[in-house]
Design a protein around this nucleic acid. Structure first.
Lengths: 97, 97
DNA sequence: ACTATATTTGCCAATATCTGTCAAGACAAT
DNA sequence: ATTGTCTTGACAGATATTGGCAAATATAGT
């Protein structure tokens, strides 16, 4: 499982001296969910990120980018053809813009 | 919806002079599924690709790569931060190898 | 070692998403 | 009008995701 996002969250949370339970409460989810998120065992829903960024006084865009990167990672991490597929996507995206 | 994969399938199928119904039968699914796949409205299951490549006398790796690229595209196509996220993933992947 | 608190883990129910089928409709060609 | 191909939408069953709970495990202080 991808964990860039989770690692960053833990970093930010501890820097703010927040306990899992405190962050969970503010996000209105169970403590175990945050625990799992920080260890990359679970994904957060996209809609929860703005609030999370707010709570952690972090940059929303940074977290959203990390979150999205984790989604992609989860999709391709075990794929031998990940590299080529990514290249293809990058190319296609550039054209579309 | 991503459609690179589907477009290629249609190309290959017509080149082989196969009807939707014929390809569907060989793949053991309903005709409507192939129709949707070719128009990018549905995704095929990864496990079906080897057989599909065989039926269409196509390169398995090529189809698998296109398929994976479509998965990624579906994930990021509406995301403003797609570019950055992709860059991040590409970088992470290279390190892991 | 004991207690208190924090975190992790496994399991469950609810919900959402995915996969395939079917039946009806659109479209050509004859 | 009939026939054959392809498309579309509704539906059911399977699968995956989400969040909550409770028990297990760490961690720290005494």
């Amino acid at each position: 499982m991808a964990k860039q996002f989770g690692e960053r969250i833990r970093e930010l949370r501890t820097k703010q001296n927040l306990l899992l339970r405190q962050l969970a409460s503010k996000l209105d989810v169970d403590t175990s969910i945050i625990s799992k998120v920080e260890r990359g065992e679970r994904q957060l829903k996209k809609e929860q990120i703005p609030l999370l960024a707010d709570i952690l006084k972090a940059d929303k865009t940074e977290l959203e980018t990390l979150w999205l990167a984790d989604q992609v990672m989860d999709l391709i991490k075990d794929e031998p053809l990940a590299d080529e597929a990514l290249k293809s996507v990058t190319k296609t995206i550039k054209k579309t813009k």
